[in-house]
Computed example of a mutant assay.
Amino acid sequence: MATTHLLYLHGFRSSPESAKARLMAAHVAAHHPGVHWWCPQLPPSPREAAQLLLDGTADWPRATTAVIGSSLGGFYASWFAQQRRCPSVLLNPAVFPARDLQRHIGEQTGWHDPEASFFFRAEFIDELQALDTRALPAAAPALAIIAKGDEVLDWREMVARYPEAQIELLEGGNHALDDFAFHMERIGRFLELV
């Protein structure tokens, strides 16, 4: 089923200004102008982020919605795909954010705007655990693009987390997927962007 509505979810400390989000937005605008694109700024609270996504997509057509998520956004994308039973593309997705973000409790600055700071609260760890879908079978097709050279997350954990996904395992690479432009056509084909 062709995708008419596409949600893009950025990672921890990131924003809609991330290189991948901007590249994908430009690609969709240039090659798939019929696709409705939304890349919201996610709040630090996972519970609030989840509610924002449900509210913001409440009137989207279920059959033609898809989601792309990077890093922590990949974790959220897996949760969203379960809720909406929609295809997902996961870019170096966070697998155990409740474990990995423990050490980031406290004041954080935005990656793209150091003036923008937020407080990552201890209770957000519990909120992340509440969104964990690892125990559930995949709700819809998924494509995971995973770099062995990711300096933030363990590629082996990512591969093990998504046994049912199509996996594009990159030799080398990095967490930011600096070669992301190379993968956009594959993503477009996978999601059947209109």
Results as ranks from 00 to 15, higher is better:
163 P>F: 10
156 R>K: 15
139 A>K: 05
159 V>R: 14
167 I>T: 12
167 I>V: 15
147 A>C: 15
157 E>T: 12
147 A>F: 01
149 G>E: 00
136 L>K: 13
139 A>F: 06
166 Q>M: 14
136 L>S: 13
162 Y>M: 06
153 L>A: 04
166 Q>R: 15
166 Q>N: 12
140 A>Y: 10
151 E>L: 06
158 M>W: 02
139 A>R: 07
161 R>N: 13
142 A>F: 00
141 P>T: 09
143 L>F: 08
161 R>F: 09
143 L>R: 02
150 D>Y: 04
154 D>K: 03
145 I>W: 00
157 E>P: 00
166 Q>V: 14
158 M>D: 04
151 E>Q: 11
151 E>S: 07
142 A>P: 04
149 G>K: 00
154 D>Q: 08
138 A>C: 12
162 Y>H: 15
156 R>H: 12
148 K>T: 10
166 Q>P: 00
161 R>S: 13
149 G>P: 05
140 A>T: 10
145 I>F: 06
154 D>P: 01
151 E>V: 02
158 M>P: 09
159 V>C: 07
153 L>S: 01
140 A>P: 11
142 A>S: 14
152 V>R: 11
157 E>G: 07
158 M>R: 08
158 M>H: 07
141 P>V: 09
159 V>W: 04
153 L>M: 07
165 A>W: 08
159 V>L: 11
162 Y>C: 05
139 A>L: 09
145 I>H: 03
162 Y>E: 10
155 W>Q: 02
163 P>A: 12
140 A>R: 09
157 E>W: 13
144 A>W: 00
145 I>R: 00
144 A>Y: 01
160 A>T: 14
155 W>L: 05
166 Q>Y: 11
146 I>H: 00
142 A>T: 06
162 Y>I: 03
167 I>L: 13
158 M>F: 05
150 D>M: 05
146 I>D: 01
153 L>C: 04
141 P>A: 11
165 A>H: 08
150 D>P: 13
141 P>F: 10
141 P>L: 08
140 A>F: 10
152 V>N: 13
162 Y>R: 09
155 W>A: 04
163 P>C: 12
151 E>D: 13
167 I>N: 04
143 L>I: 10
143 L>E: 05
139 A>D: 08
153 L>N: 01
147 A>K: 02
139 A>N: 09
160 A>R: 15
164 E>G: 11
156 R>P: 04
135 A>W: 10
164 E>Q: 15
136 L>C: 13
147 A>D: 06
135 A>S: 15
153 L>D: 03
155 W>P: 06
154 D>R: 05
135 A>M: 11
143 L>N: 06
160 A>F: 12
156 R>N: 03
140 A>Q: 11
159 V>I: 14
146 I>K: 01
155 W>N: 02
152 V>F: 10
151 E>K: 00
137 P>G: 09
148 K>G: 07
144 A>D: 01
145 I>N: 04
152 V>S: 13
147 A>P: 07
158 M>C: 08
142 A>N: 06
139 A>V: 06
167 I>S: 06
158 M>E: 07
144 A>C: 09
149 G>R: 00
164 E>L: 13
152 V>Q: 14
164 E>N: 14
156 R>Q: 15
144 A>P: 03
156 R>F: 03
161 R>H: 15
165 A>Y: 08
161 R>M: 11
156 R>G: 01
160 A>I: 13
139 A>W: 09
153 L>T: 01
160 A>V: 12
